[in-house]
Design a protein around this nucleic acid. Structure first.
Lengths: 231, 231
DNA sequence: CAGTGGTCTAGACCACTCC
DNA sequence: GAGTGGTCTAGACCACTGG
């Protein structure tokens, strides 16, 4: 009997060897089912899975094509900072260094879709690995999207942890850039120590709950830190 | 009739509303099939797909559990630099500024799994957006994995473009960090102009063809550049 | 209209793992 | 041993789309 994984593996081989060239049509499900001596559903299971990963393109009536340019996609399994620190074998530490209601920058106002001049909840926290500042985070929360946030106890729970258990954040964007110590919020510079030329990695995340922008968080990592992912 | 997408949607609703709490077991496939009035295979299709995305954890004999910490995963659809530049409406430019055979750094030697002191093909290129240097790239290629690379015409084709059409690169890793102008290879500093404190974003990619490490490429982006992705 | 993939079904057997 | 998910099958009908 042919399992769908075996079918998939054989298909991959034919693509790699060039027997089924990129851009070309491959045989129909029915044909392959006959050839491999299995049910069409089994072929379908194998091909659907490859199509989901982008290696094949399938269209009714047309057939299944080997993708010309399979998507170059990298996935970053970004766990919580806490997990990241503990995965390094370090002791996780966390401190809330400031919070309040403030009018955010114009950029954040746009990102949270607030009215001009409308205040948002702000929190400044530091994550430690073995008592050394590992990451500084400045986050803003849309008060209309999460009215209880202002009352949240953040002394032991990070803003993101609180939010993810109180609001169904279901999508978002992330942006990674480099800056240097001179351009940081004050509490970040203090935590990392004064060295005005040192490069800092900035990860900015915006999280949404359906059609509502809930939070923008900027995380700062000192020189030497690297975000990694697989391709 | 209940489609598997409808089942999936209903399952998601029950998770979001807390009817099926995180960490808890949900009913068995057979039970759900009866409740929803459809075949078990349909339930299986819906749940398998959710399990693949990490929202459910399934184990034989035990059952299906709502994941306590669904993976926070972001995907970066990293197209070729060329597409990235053109997507901004700029004119793509490319220049090969150097190449040769050289013994790489110890780190790269390890990444390409070379012997100590074994030379690798090296190429230095610059990508331009409207005649402004947009990205500098330093790449090394394992000469055993791609022996023809040394003969490749790179005057119009970037190393990565050449490789991806001559070698079946099928997985890899990526690492993003920040550095400053002081720590760059010489040609990068020249291209970006002298400003020793300016932060630079470094993206390092390693690409493999099956079990063979083929290439390591470091891309440098000047201050202001941001990599973005969706969560 | 006809050919292709997309999906549902009912039933069957297997694979794993807890008790 | 028994309960759960994992998979295969044969058949059916539907949905989309090119000629």
């Amino acid at each position: 009997m042919m399992t769908w994984q075996a079918v998939q593996s054989e298909v991959l081989t034919r693509i790699r060897t060039g027997q089924w060239p990129a851009g070309g049509l491959i045989p129909t499900e029915t044909t392959l089912a006959t050839e491999f001596g299995c049910a069409r559903a089994t072929i379908n299971r194998a091909l659907t899975s490859l199509a989901e990963s982008g290696l094949l393109e399938r269209r009714r009536k047309v057939g299944t094509r080997v993708a010309e340019h399979p998507p170059q996609q990298s996935t970053m399994t970004k766990v919580f900072i806490r997990g990241e620190i503990e995965a390094r074998g370090a002791v996780y530490g966390y401190r809330l260094v400031g919070r309040g209601l403030a009018v955010p920058t114009e950029q954040v106002t746009r990102q949270l879709i607030l009215d001009r001049g409308q205040p948002a909840d702000e929190a400044q926290v530091i994550y430690f690995a073995d008592d050394t500042p590992y990451c500084c985070e400045l986050s803003w929360v849309n008060p209309e999207a999460a009215p209880d946030f202002a009352l949240a106890d953040l002394t032991d729970t990070s803003p993101h942890e609180w939010l993810s258990s109180h609001v169904a954040l279901n999508h978002g964007t992330m942006s990674i850039s480099a800056t240097n110590t001179a351009d940081l919020p004050e509490f970040v510079g203090e935590a990392f120590g004064v060295d005005p030329g040192a490069p800092v990695l900035v990860v900015e995340r915006t999280h949404w709950a359906n059609a509502v922008a809930v939070t923008v968080a900027r995380q700062y990592f000192r020189e030497g830190y690297a975000l990694s992912s697989t391709i």
